[in-house]
Design a protein around this nucleic acid. Structure first.
Lengths: 282, 282
DNA sequence: TGTTATCTGTAATTAAATTACATTTTGTGC
DNA sequence: GCACAAAATGTAATTTAATTACAGATAACA
């Protein structure tokens, strides 16, 4: 969700009765509101026109037209959501559009659900960790592998075990100073949940990169929520994987930055180490 | 570029002198126009207010305010591109924003560069292939693994070898009926190029999921271009990996669809096979 | 070059949004 | 619980913006 709608949805915000009503209406029918005049909206909500105007200026905007402009812009960003299901008759171009739209949508909603505070807390734990174990099954295995690859580059003591048995053993061997990063789209993959429980019992910090309010999220001490909910089932495994990787990128970037020395320099070093295997240019 | 701006830029469109002037101004300062009144815009362009109004209705919009709304929405979609470099002082929220923006931008430009015709041709080759070998080094290894995982699900004879030596041997053993899918961000990773050459020499179809106009792209018979160019160096490895995965999604989806029986049913079968390991819900 | 169709601008009208001010509601100290 | 202050809301007036109606200009075509 974007800044504006998120702001409106924020129930903590101090707001008058009419303002609350207006906010609720906008949240319920955002797309419709864009094509409404201030008078129409006022009538529908049951308040006066100036009240709507004050509501808008109270949000820091210049007035009602400005509000509509911002709302339209925000909805446009979200509108990748319109991606429909892939159906048998779809052309190749259709599939391209739908897959990419779904990817955008997944990234959008994951970004909206990420709490910088939680991210920072997770980064702090990862930094302090003596060792980090990453688990992910099935399609999440490649995400785990990717996370491992990146973290190793930054000299972070990390291990992604490929098979379930090794994962269990690794989890059981953890201690209070260690971290377990569990990756799962659904948060309902039994073996992964079991491992999370085992690690939790040892006192290790369990971090879930998974669907919010899933069993796995319940076990984890920190949850980095990855969109799943509303989206159609078909895309979940495809596009939420991208979102997971983006979250991994945020974590590793943040880790690298916290690592002390300045980030670009470190990154440059890594890049240079790769150059030897490259041809042409640079 | 979106529908509206593309329309304005279309020099082929039959348009009056003033209309042309207005279109040019909007194209030059789109963001500014959003905050202008019809009178202001008319003054700056040097035409009358009704002319601006007619210009808008002529575009199929309801009027000038509607035009501004559409323009704002369109700009919002493009604005992902603004992602700046990550700099040492960035906050966690900054990093989240930048990483996700870069991901969006990368997806956008990759989508734009994908030619449905090439995708179809690649899919046809993959379908007809006796066997498929996937190679990717370093960070691309996890992409290769992911591709393998998905293709195996659809009963496609595929193998992603983990180490370079095995990859070379596998490539050498290919024949005219086989495919090699090479994954590389830069298209300049020597070992991957070597393997592509070896496979090409055997008559196998070499497909490159890589940067266009790179050495690897030169060797490959088919190129699925993944954005790299303009973007700042720092992000290339992070976000182009997401774009690569999205392309893989398109390929596998298309493969599954072509596989004969209807796609949703097949997908459902796969999902059901996973349910046994899940807890709660469904 | 005359004729017509299209485009453009001026002025009038209508619609929309904001401001000013009066009234009500809500909260607070006693 | 009452008096007062502060905030919120509404009504009406004002201003601003946008559209419409119409007339003049320009360009296209015979």
């Amino acid at each position: 969700m974007g800044r504006l709608l998120a702001e409106l949805a924020d129930s903590g915000a101090r707001r008058s009765k009419s303002a609350r009503r207006i906010a609720d209406y906008v949240l319920a029918q955002p797309a419709e509101v864009v094509s409404l005049s201030i008078g129409e909206l006022a009538r529908r909500v049951g308040v006066s026109e100036p009240t709507v105007g004050r509501f808008c200026t109270g949000l820091g905007l210049k007035g009602f037209p400005d509000f509509k402009l911002n709302l339209a812009a925000e909805l446009a960003r979200q509108d990748f959501h319109v991606a429909g299901d892939i159906v048998p008759g779809d052309s190749c171009a259709d599939v391209i559009t739908k897959v990419f739209d779904a990817a955008h949508a997944s990234l959008q909603s994951t970004r909206g659900g990420l709490d910088p505070g939680v991210v920072e807390a997770v980064v702090a734990r990862l930094r302090a960790a003596r060792s980090i174990v990453i688990v992910g099954q099935g399609a999440s295995a490649s995400v785990a592998l990717d996370a491992q690859h990146k973290m190793l580059r930054f000299d972070i003591p990390v291990l992604a075990h490929p098979d379930n048995l090794t994962q269990r053993m690794a989890a059981a061997g953890l201690g209070a100073d260690d971290c377990l990063l569990c990756i799962s789209y659904t948060g309902r993959t039994r073996p992964v949940i079991d491992i999370a429980r085992i690690a939790d019992a040892t006192g290790a910090t369990v971090i879930g990169l998974t669907a919010p309010s899933s069993p796995l999220a319940g076990v984890a001490r920190f949850v980095l929520p990855v969109a799943s909910g509303e989206d159609t089932d078909l895309y979940i495994p495809m596009s939420s994987r991208l979102a997971q990787l983006a979250v991994i990128d945020v974590l590793t970037t943040r880790l690298a930055m916290a690592q002390g020395e300045d980030y670009p320099a470190q990154f440059r070093r890594i890049k240079e180490s790769q150059l030897s295997t490259r041809v042409g240019k640079r």
